[in-house]
């Protein structure tokens, strides 16, 4: 088995699948809002990895790099906003468990 581009692509895809599975599992099972956020971040990293890997495989590294950087930058913003929401939710409901967030109207 040689480490050619196709193999690399396949192993990267395997990693992506594993990371998506982990992320979803985390999102589906964790009650702690911070942990849910971490799960979302794992999903986002899986997407980033998918982009990089596709760029390598299709020989479009430039585009892939640009998209990856945009992705990371946006993700930072998303995390910032999400954390702010978590802080507010925690203040409002007195805790950071997702179970407290079941009412439609705060």
């Amino acid at each position: 088995m040689t480490w050619d581009m196709a193999t690399l692509w396949r192993s990267d895809l395997a990693a992506v699948v594993i990371m998506v599975g982990l992320g979803l599992f985390c999102v589906a099972t964790q009650r702690n809002l911070i942990k849910v956020l971490i799960g979302i971040e794992v999903l986002a990293r899986a997407v980033t990895l998918c982009l990089v890997s596709a760029g390598l495989n299709l020989d479009k590294q430039g585009v892939a790099s640009a998209l990856t950087i945009v992705c990371i930058t946006l993700d930072a913003a998303v995390v910032a906003v999400a954390l702010a929401l978590v802080v507010n939710a925690a203040r409002h409901y007195g805790g950071i468990s997702a179970r407290r967030l079941t009412r439609l109207k705060g």
Binding site: L24, V27, A28, T29, Q30, R31, L33, V36, A98, R99, L101, T102, R103, L104
Partner: peptide
């Protein structure tokens, strides 16, 4: 319609 965040996210997925 539980309003449970985890279930909603599973639904999204």
């Amino acid at each position: 319609q539980t309003g449970d965040l985890n279930r909603n996210l599973v639904g999204v997925a």
